[in-house]
């Protein structure tokens, strides 16, 4: 059931006072857990649980001709499937706008941060390059799927290794121990605006009460933080002040998330 009008009102009221139904602070994430290697058939795979939200992501590698405009770069293809297994709100059929937008946000976060060094995925310039297929499947939706997906993908990529390549053909099922060329890990954070406040890691009920959201993907270089991707969504427009304030918070919080991810990847 979509949340009733009065629950929505209650959530708005509480958030106005800086409170949440589950007792968290507005910027407090639920504890998250990363599990690596959920499918041995994948070149890399991971499961992420944030509260009751669960997402799996997997990496498969293939080879093919490069794009004409980037003859030496590997290719990256990110797909999200919102299968109705994970929520009664999802429907069977081709990916809808929600799935496509999520995939695009994760794609841009990976691409623009340069997490995967696509230059190093060249086998023969102009002829053969690696393609990285990233597939994301939510298993249980209790909110914050974008951030959960990004963490799952980062973990799966972190774990991924190349398959064996013989005479320009991938030997599926035969994995090497050579890791993917990775550089700057992007941290993806989505802020939801409920009433006049912003919060992190919403539950589904909080998402339904939100009128706008903004996603930011960031990397660090020593003390400097860079913004690589942004996505403002939802019906309500935002003021510049709100956006810069939220981004300032994001830059501070991102370090904590980064540390938490690193700790679990070791």
């Amino acid at each position: 059931m979509e949340i009733a009008g009065l629950t929505k009102k209650k959530i708005e009221e509480m958030i106005k006072e800086g409170k949440r139904m589950d007792g968290r602070g507005l910027l407090e994430m639920r504890p998250f857990e990363i599990e690596l290697g959920i499918s041995k058939k994948a070149e890399g795979s991971a499961r992420v649980k944030i509260g009751d939200t669960e997402v799996v992501a997997g990496i498969k590698l293939g080879v093919g001709e490069p794009f004409v405009d980037s003859p030496e770069d590997g290719a990256l293809i990110v797909t999200v499937e919102l299968w109705p297994l994970a929520s009664e709100k999802f429907e069977m059929g081709p990916p809808d706008i929600q799935a496509i937008e999520m995939a695009r946000i994760v794609d841009r976060s990976l691409r623009e941060s340069g997490y995967i060094d696509l230059k190093k995925l060249c086998v023969k310039a102009g002829e053969l390059v690696w393609t990285v297929f990233v597939d994301i499947y939510p298993i249980n939706d209790d909110g914050n799927l974008i951030d959960a997906s990004a963490i799952a993908v980062i973990a799966a990529l972190h774990e991924a290794v190349f398959p064996e390549l013989k005479e320009d053909k991938v030997q599926y099922g035969e994995l090497t121990d050579k890791k993917l060329p990775l550089k700057n890990m992007p941290i993806v954070m989505t802020f939801y605006k409920v009433g006049e406040s912003f919060l992190l890691d919403p539950t589904v009920a909080e998402e339904e009460a939100a009128k706008a959201r903004i996603t930011v993907a960031m990397t660090f270089d020593k003390d400097e933080v860079f913004i690589h991707a942004l996505q403002k969504a939802g019906d309500e427009p935002l003021e510049e002040r709100e956006i810069t304030e939220v981004l300032a918070i994001a830059m501070k919080e991102a370090k904590k998330v980064h540390e938490k991810i690193l700790r679990q990847l070791k």
């Binding site: 059931m1 009065l6 629950t7 209650k10």
Partner: peptide, 9 residues
Amino acid sequence: KLEGGMLIK
């Protein structure tokens, strides 16, 4: 009709 308060499931 219910006014105010919250619903849980």
